[in-house]
């Protein structure tokens, strides 16, 4: 009995580490969707870019982990703003599907440029934290998991502070609620949208670097599946709701680890989408979302 409980706790720990990475990516999806109602398909690729920038910062510029993380976040934020400016802003007033197709195009463009420049072979991420494992009450916890949990938690607290207590955060919430009214109140909506992309991209880049140290390998196509799963996490938590993305990410991580533990790992991708379809049918607004009534 005790062994089973230990095993469950062990899987929970693993699931929460993975889930906090999904949560970081999901936050970017949910913030962008909350503000301009666009599924930013290129977000998973920003996460890939973040991982590569971190890789180069550590390998070529000999940075240690935390400066590399910050550099990756800043550069990715810049990319996010540029993408929004060039590809999404001109389409702000056209149909949703046109914007969505553009986002898919941007995603394909980033992936293929990365494939050309960085080659498709996976690279091994530098070993910044020599593996150390701790055993607490029979549950193994390694130092990388602790770094991931620590960084993810810290970033989420910072994000919460920005959104709740700063002027820009208040402007973000206002634009999400009603962009026309926000504009009439004198809020520079374009700047708020740029800021949102910067924030979301920085979080995705952080997730990319964390995945790098967790799995030790990165490649140009790594953004696809985690991107989709993080998006599912955002929908699961209630898209547009920031705490929802965090909860959704954690649930996804734990569910995935549980499925891998119980069945074979080839089923894990199906489970993410199975959860998605069930949640969409039972509670389309997500765990924390508010149901909106369709008006004529």
């Amino acid at each position: 009995m005790a062994a089973i409980i230990q095993e469950i706790i062990q899987q929970l720990v693993n699931g929460i580490s993975l889930g906090s990475i999904y949560a970081l990516i999901a936050l970017g999806y949910t913030m962008v969707y909350g503000i301009i109602k666009l599924i930013n398909f290129a977000h998973g690729d920003i996460y890939m870019l973040g991982a590569f920038i971190g890789f180069f910062a550590i390998n070529i510029f000999q940075m240690s982990f935390f400066p590399a993380l910050i550099v990756a976040m800043i550069v990715a934020a810049f990319f996010g703003v540029v993408i929004e400016r060039l590809a999404y802003r001109p389409l702000r007033h056209s149909t949703r599907i046109a914007a969505l197709i553009t986002a898919i195009g941007v995603s394909m463009l980033i992936q293929n440029v990365a494939l050309l420049v960085w080659k498709p072979d996976p690279r091994s991420f530098p070993d910044v934290f020599p593996f150390k494992s701790y055993k607490i009450w029979g549950v193994y916890l390694d130092n990388r998991q602790l770094v991931i949990l620590g960084v993810a938690l810290f970033l989420m607290v910072v994000l919460h502070y920005i959104v709740r207590y700063t002027r820009m955060g208040r402007a973000m919430r206002a634009v999400a609620l009603d962009d026309d009214a926000a504009r009439l109140m004198g809020i520079d909506v374009d700047r708020v949208i740029s800021f949102t992309f910067a924030l979301g991209s920085a979080l995705a880049a952080a997730a990319g670097v964390l995945v790098g140290i967790y799995y030790n390998r990165i490649d140009p196509m790594m953004g696809g599946m985690p991107g989709l799963k993080a998006f599912v996490a955002a929908v699961l938590g209630g898209i547009g709701v920031i705490p929802g993305a965090m909860i959704g990410g954690l649930v996804m991580g734990v569910a995935e680890v549980a499925v891998v533990a119980l069945t074979t790992s080839t089923w894990k991708d199906a489970v993410a989408f199975g959860i998605l379809i069930i949640i969409l049918l039972l509670r389309p607004a997500g765990i924390l979302g508010q149901h909106e009534r369709e008006k004529v």
Binding site: I39, L100, A270, F273, I277, L280, P284, E294
Partner: peptide, 25 residues
């Protein structure tokens, strides 16, 4: 099809992936 717009898009995306994983297994 009770779902609208983006939600339907995501649900069908999920369906497509599930078909692929089922075939895989």
């Amino acid at each position: 099809l009770r779902l609208r717009g983006d939600y339907l898009a995501i649900a069908t995306l999920g369906f497509g992936e599930i078909v692929r994983v089922v075939i895989l297994n």
